[in-house]
Nucleic acid binder design. Structure first.
Lengths: 234, 234
DNA sequence: ACCTGAACACCGTTCAAGT
DNA sequence: ACCTGAACACCGTTCAAGT
């Protein structure tokens, strides 16, 4: 891989003194900006420092480490996502919208979005997102234990697909046309003796794209919830 | 007097020459061994070099890069997983077993397992795994397009949960008692005015563990498949 | 043919020193 | 009080040189 040098001209101090103290929120904002770039190297302590005119080590006065910073940035994403969901929608449409908005937010910020599937932010954004989903499931009429269970299934489904898509964006050979490539690319002609079922379905499998797989998975979970409500106690 | 050092006194590689050429499979095996350690730093080109008595750069004669090596190691995992699935089981039990075996394999090799949700190996192990799942869905009696669709939903569900669990293992504060900690840890007393639904369900949400969420998610998908077979064409 | 060694361009993180 | 600069202990990867 070829990296552009990014060298500082003449290596001097090169940095102008900031006119006011650095704030936590500025670091979070810069993290969200850099996280939009689909490049693993774009989001690092040193790159943040350059963008904020501070030394990378100054970040550690505001966050315990890069993980802590990423958590804060993710939480800001959840806060934004929740704000975009109209309260007036009925429960299923609200959950569908929340799923799609979460996907979009995570995929648009792949640098931090890749961590969504494994990272709990423990912040107000996360709490608001959980609260929203739980409220929808209550409204659907599920009993308490199923509210909790389907929250977990729904959240893990959405977060995992979103993260996978974000990760895929970061490693895509061609940064353009992001959502167009297939979800998986098996060999175009698998050995029918060794893999007969794959050979029969290879065209179908190759035809899947990320968006389609996300929509299918979300629909499966929502359909199950709806059927539980219709015939409870199974 | 300066002599060419056969080996540096107490540090440096201090490596004995290997008696035979390095083989691709040796590197994969070492990768799988190191990937069992739940520590991000344990699996690197330099650590592999130390274990194999080679310079880290020798790996690049056998693999295009660490990504390529990880892909090969993951493929070996899928090959092992498929071998453990009894062919005699009926379709649903076979898919359940495949799900649990895949989870176990990925979680036992977190160093490469964390990549499972986003990495296609394009190797024989992956093809065998896809073939197995497709064959089960055919046996279930799904129409062709649903075979493909539910393959995607099932695979993404299993891989994403397995990867998330592997990632969680790598960052766990305490490497012992891995599966015991909750799936998510919201604040013990969220503000009931701001997050009423979360406040109502906080105990239930805190009580979820990783295994439970995986089992629930897998069951949801398998239930939907079974219901599709019973009432096709919906 | 196959591997080594050194080098390049990076990381996250710590901590004494500076302002 | 807040940030800098240097240092530490690493990365993945390349490539000329060695055997």
């Amino acid at each position: 891989m070829v990296t552009t040098p990014l060298r500082k001209a003449t290596m001097g101090p090169g940095r102008q003194r900031r006119d006011r103290p650095l704030e936590r929120q500025e670091i979070i904002d810069a993290t969200l900006v850099l996280s939009r770039l689909p490049d693993r190297r774009a989001l690092s302590a040193r790159q943040l420092g350059e963008r904020l005119n501070i030394d990378a080590s100054a970040i550690y006065r505001h966050f315990a480490g890069m993980d802590d910073l990423f958590r804060a940035a993710l939480d800001a994403i959840w806060l934004d996502a929740v704000k975009l969901i109209p309260r007036s929608l009925p429960w299923r449409a609200r959950l569908e919208t929340m799923g799609h908005v979460s996907l979009q937010m995570v995929v648009e910020h792949p640098g931090v979005g890749v961590e969504a599937y494994r990272m709990n932010t423990n912040g107000p954004g996360e709490q608001a997102a959980i609260d929203l989903v739980l409220a929808c499931l209550e409204e659907a009429g599920l009993p308490d234990h199923e509210v909790v269970e389907f929250y977990a299934v729904l959240a893990s489904t959405v977060l995992s697909h979103a993260s996978a898509q974000a990760a895929w964006r970061m490693t895509a050979a061609d940064p353009r046309l992001p959502a167009e490539r297939p979800w998986i690319e098996p060999p175009s002609a698998p050995d029918p003796a060794a893999f007969p079922a794959l050979a029969r379905h290879v065209d179908g499998v190759s035809g899947l794209d990320h968006t389609q797989v996300f929509d299918l998975s979300l629909r499966v979970v929502l359909d199950v919830i709806e059927s539980r409500v219709a015939t409870p106690g199974t």
